[in-house]
């Protein structure tokens, strides 16, 4: 008869301990790159932060004394991401509504869902090349070639699948009873969606949108083909149709320069980019928590 007491040396208990420590080691290895990366960027980039950084134009490489600031790139990233959002959010939310509410799960909607998944897996550089051949090389946008507008279009392609999928999933989580309740008091389909199901799914849709924005803001490859880069201040609406700087492309360009000043500017830009994406993610959490609270009232 085995004793009921815990036996340290039994093969089962040893195996259990080995397995627990193995999975612990794996999780530590998995998280290490994130910790190192964030600390490294915070230390290297944080040291370069000055007020001038946010106001000056970057100086062309070669002037070793002073690299200038990242103002055009910062504003450019904001503009390009905004353009991408303006395109992707309405189309994505609308598409998600169709999939979740109107399509009856037939072959067409299955095809669309599959397509969205494929689009989500398309390498970002392909989105850049696609917009390059569609917009940039054809000069279809009022004769302009590389432009902030084209950059925004490329990024919107990357945002779309995230927005569609989270809208679709969020709406599917809304219990059918709520739809029946609304239709049962004589609401039409679109009133039901606008007044009942969309507000109920607002939280997950908003989170998805914000995550989509965060992903798009950090992309480099699509912008190299579309928005290119610019050293100069963005002064007016017309600048949308010309080359536009962005943080990601600034990092790409300046990190490869042989000059120390430019490298430091790239670090500073990395710092700003990582920090802003991090804060956008945190914002989405706060948004989620906030809407959760208001829903209960």
């Amino acid at each position: 008869m085995n004793s009921l007491f815990y036996q340290k040396n039994s093969s089962r208990n040893i195996g259990d301990k080995v397995f627990t420590s193995l999975s612990l080691i794996c999780v530590v290895i998995a998280i290490l790159p994130l910790i190192f990366l964030v600390t490294y960027i915070l230390i290297k980039g944080g040291a370069q932060i000055t007020p001038e950084l946010f106001t000056l134009e970057p100086n062309p490489p070669g002037d070793d004394l002073d690299a200038g600031g990242i103002n055009p790139a910062l504003i450019g990233t904001l503009i390009i991401t905004t353009i991408a959002s303006i395109i992707a959010i309405p189309v994505g939310v609308g598409g998600g509504i169709y999939l979740a509410e109107y399509s009856k799960g037939g072959p067409f909607s299955r095809f669309i869902r599959f397509g969205v998944n494929v689009l989500a897996g398309v390498p970002s550089i392909i989105a850049g090349v696609f917009i390059y051949s569609l917009v940039v090389s054809t000069k279809i946008l009022f004769g302009s070639m590389y432009s902030g507008l084209a950059g925004g279009m490329a990024l919107s392609i990357l945002m779309l699948p995230t927005v569609i999928k989270t809208t679709d999933e969020g709406l599917k989580l809304v219990p059918n009873e709520l739809r029946y309740a609304s239709l049962g008091v004589g609401a039409s389909m679109y009133t039901t969606i606008l007044k009942i199901t969309l507000p109920s799914a607002f939280r997950s849709i908003a989170t998805g949108v914000v995550l989509g924005i965060a992903r798009a803001a950090g992309e480099t490859a699509p912008l190299i083909f579309t928005a290119l880069f610019s050293y100069y201040y963005i002064t007016g609406f017309g600048d949308l149709f010309y080359e536009m700087g962005s943080l990601a492309v600034l990092i790409y360009n300046f990190a490869l320069e042989p000059y120390d000043a430019q490298n430091k500017l790239a670090w500073a830009a990395s710092f700003i980019l990582v920090l802003s994406i991090l804060s956008v993610n945190i914002f989405s959490r706060i948004l989620a928590a906030f809407t959760e609270k208001t829903k209960r009232v």
Partner: peptide, 18 residues
């Protein structure tokens, strides 16, 4: 929609709107 306006329904599970 018109039919449901004139013939209302109460369901098995209470389902108030949020």
């Amino acid at each position: 929609v018109e039919v449901r306006r004139r013939i209302g329904m109460v369901f098995q599970q209470p389902n108030p709107f949020p």
